[in-house]
Amino acid sequence: MVAKYRAGGLDDPEDEAGEVAAAESAAERRVAEVDAAGHGERLDRWLTGLAPEFSRNHLQSLIERGCVLVDGRALQKAAHKLRAGQRVEIELQPTDESRAFRAEPMALDLAFEDEHLLVVNKPAGLVVHPAPGNWSGTLMNGLLAHHPAAASLPRAGIVHRLDKDTSGLMVVGKTLEAVTALTRQIAAREVHREYLALAWGRVEEAFVVEKAMRRDPVSRVKMAVAPANLGKPARTDVFPLGVGDVQGRPVSAVHCVLHTGRTHQIRVHLMHSGHPLLADALYGGAPALGLSRQALHAARLGFTHPITGAAITLVAALPADLASAWAGIGAADLPG
């Protein structure tokens, strides 16, 4: 089975069974003559009748790429008005999304694995699943190579995600039963997730950020704090682990506990509290201590095994870049 993903990630799955089925086969050509009912119709709209299993956006991209001929001539304008009697030929090529759902062998740092699930220690820089600009080389591609049966699972078994430049632990289901149970645990807030971060400013006392979140109304690549009636509930507990001085400015090591799992939650909540993460360009955190990515690591993951019922708690040490920065301010480690 091939799955389709769009920008926005796990909150935005689409059911494109017909389109996917077409994409799995080799590109085919379809030819038809415009009848009286199609006279004056836009080319892209008319094509949705000839190839209804594809989205109109994808058909428009095929027009732009010269895959559509009208009376033997490539017309690269989706708004072209057709005339009755014209012969239209289209080469149906698979969508980028469907091509992305392919196995790509890669080294996976596995903290735990059995026949039901696995926990991967994701490195910074690895995208979790395909999206525009990253149609290959993702964790999902690696999972398909490591565990071919993942091809039959929703999102290849991925039940939650980390940002591209956040490192750390992620649990992945290997069977539909495990995926379903893990998804329910996450929805019920029964999966325990803790992070280590380096943030600008002085954090010497624990605090709680309980602010609803939504997509930023100005920049669609960002999230933002929102009034409770306009956003989804979100809570982050923040605990101090140490404060150091960097370039004449205080930097704090913090331990963050998630009670919800909104996109960019820790990054937004700390920025809103006046403590943006080091090297988090999207949310105003200046780089320091040699870091080229946001200083955030999913260090501890706890959940109930969906099949055996055993309590599982795993800890991932800081990767080299964060460990070096962490030592640079003399911060304490994740509490036991």
Rank of each mutant, 00 (worst) to 15 (best):
S252E: 04
G244K: 03
D44V: 09
G9T: 05
P227S: 03
E104M: 04
L143G: 00
F101V: 07
E113W: 00
A151F: 12
L196R: 06
T183G: 15
D163P: 00
K211I: 05
Y195L: 00
V238Q: 02
T166S: 06
L241I: 06
T313E: 15
S324I: 10
V221P: 08
V31H: 11
P217D: 05
V225L: 04
A320Y: 05
Q86W: 13
K77P: 08
L182T: 06
E194R: 08
T95E: 13
T180L: 12
L59T: 08
L75V: 15
V88C: 12
V243I: 11
M223A: 09
S98C: 14
A325L: 08
E19R: 02
L126Y: 05
K122S: 11
A224V: 07
G231W: 00
Q265N: 10
V120W: 01
K122D: 04
G231M: 07
L282T: 03
G49F: 06
S252F: 04
L126D: 06
N141L: 12
M170D: 05
E210W: 12
T138F: 04
Q76I: 11
W135N: 10
A145C: 00
H264W: 12
V218F: 13
G231R: 01
P319S: 10
L296Q: 01
I266E: 06
Q93D: 09
T308K: 13
L118F: 08
A178E: 12
V127L: 08
P13Y: 07
V120Y: 01
W135P: 11
V68H: 05
A149T: 13
L153Q: 02
G242V: 02
P319W: 02
L62F: 04
V34A: 14
G157S: 09
V70Q: 06
H116R: 04
S98K: 09
G38D: 05
G173A: 09
A78M: 09
R202S: 15
A311E: 14
M213D: 09
L258H: 09
